[in-house]
Each structure stands twice: as structure tokens, then as C-alpha cells.
Write a protein that binds this DNA or RNA. Structure first.
Length: 171
DNA sequence: CCCTGATTCGC
DNA sequence: GCGAATCAGG
């Protein structure tokens, strides 16, 4: 998955709106949050006003100045690809109508690009989170990949399983 | 532990 | 330029 103009544009937009890197990565699909952060820095749009922490200065920058070897990676040396599943998932989205309601008014949680499935299209592994009013004609379901232990995707699980008492505090 | 962005550096 | 690994925090 490469950084097309369109994807970069989306990245800029979402970043400007204050979404976190992982949230943006979920929206774009096929990239990790590290990729998003890296791209953000390369685009020099790191600031973003004041959405998150005041960014206490990094006080690192002094790695082990070993004399000889060039390779580091102290931990486990695991090379090749890791992000493949997301790409396959994105391929499915390309065949579906896309909706980008990425931010819920009362919850600071990203809704991944909905597949807008009909009720009959749901399976055991599709997110059952409803889009819109069940009485409306536009009613559909999220349809993203559901978690292993629930009827919702990882993002909707946060909403679904959040206690009512916790929800109320947001507004 | 969950998460956040920041940085490094092999590729 | 890209992004995993890592770091430094909340």
C-alpha cells in the first residue's frame, strides 16, 4: 500500500482534525500507526495545534555509541512483513460502498470505514454495529471484521461494552 | 497493560 | 521515502 495523493490527502485531513495515528491508520487501512507517524513527520505536519499531550521534550538521542558494528536490534531479530491482513481486508472494501463517518459525537472513538452491509449479509465474523437509525431506509451495519469474542469490530466493541455510567460522563 | 507521538536507521 | 523497532511518556 503506497502513499497515493488521495491517501496523503486523507491523512492530512484526519491528522488536522486531531485523530490519533492509530485511528488514522485504521481509516486508511493497510498501514500501521508507525507508518502514519513516519509519514506525518516527513510531511512536516507534526504540530497539529493542541489535540494531545503537551509533548514533553524527548530526552533520549544518545544511543549506545558502540565503536564498531552498524546493526542494532537488541531484541528479537524478526525481519519480513507483518502487515498483510489489513491489505486483504481493504481489498474487500473496494467492492463495497464506502462511508466515512469516522467520528462519533459523544465518543472519541473512530469508526472504521463501514461496509454498510444489509442484515442478511452479516455473518459470524462481521461487525453488527448499526449505522444510523434502524427505522430509516439507510440503515445498515458496520460489517467490518468482528472481534474474536464479540459481535463487534475492535472499535465498536469499545462503545458496545462501555458501561452506561461511563458513557454519560462524556456529555 | 492500554494508549500516545517521537526518533532512529536498515532497507 | 518508508516504516518496524524502539523510546518516552500519559
Amino acid at each position: 500500500m503506497n502513499w497515493t495523493d488521495e491517501r496523503v490527502e486523507t491523512l492530512k485531513k484526519l491528522w488536522a482534525e486531531g485523530l490519533s495515528a492509530s485511528q488514522i491508520a485504521a481509516q486508511l487501512g493497510g498501514v500501521s500507526r508507525n507508518a502514519v507517524i513516519g509519514k506525518v513527520h516527513r510531511l512536516k505536519l507534526s504540530s497539529r495545534g493542541r489535540a494531545t499531550s503537551p509533548r514533553t521534550r524527548q530526552k533520549k538521542a544518545a544511543p549506545a555509541t558502540q565503536g564498531t558494528t552498524t546493526t542494532r536490534r537488541p531484541r528479537n531479530t524478526r525481519p519480513t512483513t507483518v502487515s498483510v491482513g489489513a491489505t486483504a481486508l481493504q481489498a474487500q472494501f473496494d467492492e463495497e460502498p464506502v462511508a466515512r463517518t469516522y467520528l462519533r459525537p459523544t465518543e472519541n472513538v473512530v469508526v472504521p470505514i463501514s461496509r454498510k452491509l444489509e442484515l442478511v449479509q452479516l455473518t459470524e465474523t462481521t461487525c453488527k454495529w448499526p449505522n444510523g437509525d434502524p427505522l430509516s431506509e439507510d440503515f445498515s451495519f458496520c460489517g467490518n471484521e468482528a472481534g474474536e469474542n464479540g459481535p463487534y469490530c475492535t472499535y465498536h466493541s469499545r462503545l458496545a461494552y462501555q458501561p452506561a455510567s461511563e458513557r454519560r460522563r462524556s456529555r
